[in-house]
Amino acid sequence: MSSPVTAEQLAEPLYEAPAAPAPESGRPPYAAALLSRLGPDEPGYQSRLGGALADAERLLRACTRDASDPRVRALTGHLAATGGKRMRPLLVLLAAEFGDPGSEGVARAAVVTELVHLASLYHDDVVDRAATRHGAPTANALWGNRVAAMGGNWLLARAARLSADLVPEALALNSLTANRIVAGQMRELTGPGPGEDALAHYVRVTAGKTAALLAMSLGVGAWQARASRAVADTLVEYGEQLGIAFQIADDLLDLLSPEASSGKEQGRDLLVGVPSLPVLLAREGTDPCDAELRELLAAGPAAGAGWHRRVLDLFSVSPATVRARALMHQRLARARTALATLPPLPARHTLDALCDFVALRTG
């Protein structure tokens, strides 16, 4: 097996959000580049996974454009055409390596996870009133909220149709995950219940909205490839911990990364009132920096034109940011602990390197 990926390699720029829909090369550039960087150069491993990614991409594009009405095709294929990361299909294919990766339906399982993910993005953009994603206009910005929400529903229905032929365990996990995602979205919208700790509520929301789908991707891939129950359960646990760490990393990037690097408006969560982890930690912090942050966060954007920039500047030096990064590393450590029980395959090496990648995204 090749040597571990270095921090310098992981820190190199990997992805720039396209200003327009990506060309249909048949291979998702982000996932392929990520695999090439994180995966060992084992004979056949890179080519097998790269070919499987290309197959899944072709099927995804076909599934998002098979509506008879051209207007519906434009809507449902919009986000798929903007060249998303395809992280979830990649996780399905990596998990399949622990069974028989050539099993029937593995590519379908990969596409199901991405369809569910794309549907959640359509819905999230409506709720957040987001104008761009991956550097391109969102569906709601182009067609309005009601049409965009129906586009997300169409993608969920397409995922359900495609998943009907998966093995029973994968189908059951898919159904459970759909329920968890909706519950997570509802918890986020309604906020903590009476007496509920805000940080505990954050973890529950993140487990439903983000971690559940990553865990599903790994579990469905393992089940569809006929891996053992022990392996499938271990990969699901890894996905749960990686997903929470991934969301914390996104929270940090929202505050610390300029739009040119992330493809998203810096501080967007602040503007729409999403209580990210650094915000929650700042609200309970004792540092003078956090005290000013609490005042500004309580006032909101109505405080004035310089509010947004001042809040971002404070978070760049706030102990709350340091604490959030430490909690992210705790989750990544739990993910690595789960991985340690798996066979030492090239896919395990890639999943372990993915933990490094998540950590280094935030600097």
Score class of each variant (00 low, 15 high):
S2W: 00
P4A: 00
V5D: 00
A7Y: 08
E12D: 13
P18M: 05
P18L: 05
P21T: 05
E24F: 10
A33G: 15
A33T: 10
Y45L: 13
L53T: 04
A56I: 07
A56V: 05
R58Q: 13
R58C: 09
L59C: 10
L60Y: 08
D66F: 06
D66M: 05
D69E: 07
A74N: 01
A74F: 00
H78C: 01
R86D: 02
R88A: 08
L93W: 02
L94T: 00
G99A: 11
P101N: 02
E104Q: 14
R108K: 13
A110E: 09
V111R: 07
L118Y: 04
D124F: 03
D124C: 06
V126M: 07
R129V: 10
R133I: 05
R133A: 01
H134G: 08
H134T: 07
H134C: 12
G135S: 09
P137A: 09
A139C: 12
L142S: 03
W143G: 00
N145Y: 09
A149L: 15
M150D: 12
L156A: 01
L156M: 13
R158K: 15
L162E: 03
L162K: 05
S163K: 01
S163W: 00
A170E: 02
T177Y: 03
T177W: 01
V182Q: 04
A183H: 11
G184V: 05
M186W: 13
E188M: 01
P194K: 00
E196W: 04
D197F: 00
V203R: 14
V203L: 13
K209P: 03
A212S: 15
L213C: 02
L214P: 01
S217P: 03
S217A: 15
L218I: 08
V220A: 15
A222K: 12
A227R: 04
S228T: 14
A230T: 14
V231A: 12
V231Y: 06
A232Q: 10
L235T: 04
E240F: 10
E240G: 07
Q241M: 10
Q241F: 14
L242Q: 12
G243I: 03
Q247C: 08
D251H: 05
D254S: 12
L256E: 10
A260S: 15
G263Q: 12
E265C: 11
V274Y: 07
L277R: 12
A282P: 09
L296H: 02
A298W: 04
A298C: 05
G300S: 04
A305T: 14
R309V: 09
R310W: 03
S316P: 04
S318Y: 05
S318N: 08
P319W: 08
A320P: 09
T321C: 11
T321F: 06
V322G: 14
V322P: 01
R323Q: 14
A324F: 10
L327R: 15
Q330L: 13
L332F: 10
T337K: 14
T341A: 14
P344C: 06
D352A: 10
D352V: 00
L354Y: 01
C355D: 00
A359H: 12
T362I: 11
